[in-house]
């Protein structure tokens, strides 16, 4: 389908938006956090600087943070669209966006230590494809920063140190431990993407997919909705605060997905997304019409 062979510039624009414009739902959550902090305290100042930075980046169309992260991308496509052609175009878009400085050259050859210089590399960007029945291509992307990626964690239940069994109470204990261990190091306040179940690969993918959800929404599974709310409240009670300076705003949201598991395994997988929770989405229909979804 010819309309899907001419998408490089659309993908570059998707990357530009994600890198330079923090989504409104994230900005609102940061503003709400700032309003709740003690006036002129360190937490309030940190959030003030963050919000000022977000505003400035948007106004000059420059990256919000110099670590422009890994593009992690989910693409839905109709029957018959070549995923190889889409992947090639996305790779080209990453190289172009890097040239235009919307992305930093962020891919390092692990064996030689040399930067590839193009922003792309083995496994970067990370693309997921799914076929669907709708007559359009939908692309959703996050830019996942490295400092926050370093504080992600995967727990194997039961965990005797945490007295965490194989149930939602065990999940709760593991997630709170992850928030404590992260302190401010993942550029708090963060958004948690959590996966309950799955294996060591599928679970991390699912935990990242949770980050596509709006900051304020309700999990369709009632017990997970309840756990999300509770973990957000309790995570913030830890008092880590923005940047780990202490304060009420440690987490902006907690999102939990679920996968089935093997009888032998019970993983709780936590992806920590920094306050620079960069995401963007676009839909391209059969006629080539482009609709920005964020």
């Amino acid at each position: 389908m010819a309309v899907y062979e001419n998408l490089v510039e659309t993908f570059v624009e998707l990357i530009r938006r994600a890198s330079t414009q923090l989504p409104d739902d994230v900005v609102s959550a940061l503003e709400k956090g700032k309003a709740e902090e003690q006036k002129t305290g360190l937490a309030e100042k940190a959030l003030g600087t963050i919000l000022e930075n977000v505003e400035l980046a948007r106004s000059i169309s420059a990256p919000i943070c110099q670590d422009t992260g890994t593009p992690v991308v989910w693409i839905h496509h109709p029957v018959g669209v070549s995923t190889r052609a889409l992947a090639a175009q996305f790779h080209e878009a990453v190289r172009t966006a890097t040239e235009r400085k919307f992305l930093r050259p962020n891919a390092v050859d692990t064996l030689t230590g040399r930067n590839t210089g193009t922003g792309a590399g083995r496994g970067i960007p990370f693309l997921h494809f799914e076929e669907w029945d709708e007559p359009r291509v939908e692309v959703r992307m996050i830019l996942k920063g490295g400092g926050s990626e370093n504080v992600g964690a995967q727990y194997k239940l039961p965990d005797s140190r945490l007295k965490a069994g194989r149930d939602l109470e065990g999940v709760r204990r593991a997630v709170l431990d992850a928030v404590f261990e992260a302190q401010g190091k993942g550029c708090a306040p963060g958004v948690l993407g959590v996966c309950v179940g799955g294996d060591r690969v599928s679970a991390f993918e699912m935990s990242k997919r949770q980050l596509l959800r709006p900051i304020v929404d309700t999990n369709p599974i009632p017990e997970l909705a309840e756990l999300e709310e509770r973990l957000l409240r309790e995570g913030n009670q830890l008092g880590v605060g923005p940047m780990g300076f202490g304060g009420k705003t440690t987490l902006l949201a907690v999102k939990i997905g679920v996968l089935d598991r093997l009888p032998a395994c019970y993983f709780v997988t936590v992806t920590y997304m920094c306050w620079a929770d960069r995401k963007a989405a676009v839909s391209i229909d059969e006629g080539g019409e482009v609709t920005w979804l964020s």
Binding site: T49, I50, N53, P63, C65, D67, G145, G184, C187, M243
Partner: peptide, 10 residues
């Protein structure tokens, strides 16, 4: 401690 991620303000 500087504000992590505040690349433009800094």
């Amino acid at each position: 401690h500087a504000i992590g991620g505040a690349a433009q303000v800094l």
